[in-house]
Design a protein around this nucleic acid. Structure first.
Lengths: 164, 164
DNA sequence: CATATAAGTCAACATGACTGACTTAAAGAC
DNA sequence: GTCTTTAAGTCAGTCATGTTGACTTATATG
């Protein structure tokens, strides 16, 4: 117990601290995704479908390339799940207003309902965690997560809510 | 702008806050795993191999069932990657001291070297994020992540370091 | 001795990712 | 008005990682 503050010991503490973070991130992500997966299976969908539903719901009218740049997957991978979602009536496509090459994506009522069903579970999980940790902790949570990603995550702002 | 504090608006703010958390978690995990994946590809390994290396390195002498209970996958899935790691000399197996049915897992020198190579990248990423966010934020980060997981994550304590 | 447990195995299958090559339609540049 | 680039989709093949189900082997435990 005599070398608690030596450089090597500080380094060890630092590494231990970081490994705890790595593990917490793994456990949180594992359980956070595990719950929706069970619901999706009932529709014959998987995690990839969830991501598409989520982000299209988040920004209605998003283009395919915009979605690709969020997901960081190939268009071949995306087009498979997108095709299923469109064929099954969960997502609508329409040509872009200014650029008619684009296919702008929106959720159908059916798609919005499924997205909501999935989200309420995750919202409940987040609510519990946020409540238990407190407002200050939530701020720290967001700061660190933002720092872990490669770039500042894109705004993803909803188009302004229309009407008065 | 007159109804900023109505119940419906509070609910909207709450949902918006949670969606931001969901997205940050997605982006952080996406980039956090993306980096090691490239290194692993050079060895013909994938993310599943990384997880096994990581947790065996974290608790040397861990049994197969212990690893299974952390990863939440089937033993058939695990045994595939474990077999590769053992065959390629990254992990050693030995029978348990008290229970000879067990196969206790440890990293070989080669395995420890690869685990370290992968970890230093993730450590760098975490260090950056931790530094930028500050000590208080790190505490909040951990609190919220712990709350997001199903159960309090297991201790995962290293066996006490032997010697004098 | 009977049963339960730790681990592994064989087989078949689904999902979601990848590369590479190609097409179509529309936009933008000159 | 042609040329080039871009948005999107398609076809084909491959790989990694997960699943279920059935079964074996060795050892531990009641």
């Amino acid at each position: 117990m005599t070398d608690l503050k030596t450089g090597a010991n500080l380094l060890f503490l630092r590494e231990e601290e970081i490994r705890q973070g790595v593990e917490l991130l793994f456990y949180a992500y594992r359980d956070f995704t595990g719950e929706p997966d069970k619901i999706l299976a009932r529709y014959g969908f998987g995690r990839a479908h969830h991501r598409a539903l989520y982000f299209v719901g988040r920004k209605p009218g998003m283009s395919v390339s915009e979605l690709l740049s969020i997901l960081h997957i190939t268009k071949q991978s995306l087009s498979r799940v997108l095709k299923q979602l469109v064929d099954d009536g969960f997502i609508d496509q329409r040509p872009g207003d200014h650029d008619r090459r684009q296919r702008l994506l929106t959720l159908t009522a059916k798609g919005a309902a499924l997205e909501r069903e999935l989200f309420v579970r995750q919202r409940e999980r987040f609510s519990r965690a946020y409540r238990a940790a407190g407002a200050e902790a939530v701020n720290g949570f967001r700061k660190v997560l933002a720092g872990l990603a490669d770039e500042p995550p894109p705004a993803l702002a909803r188009p302004p809510i229309s009407g008065k």
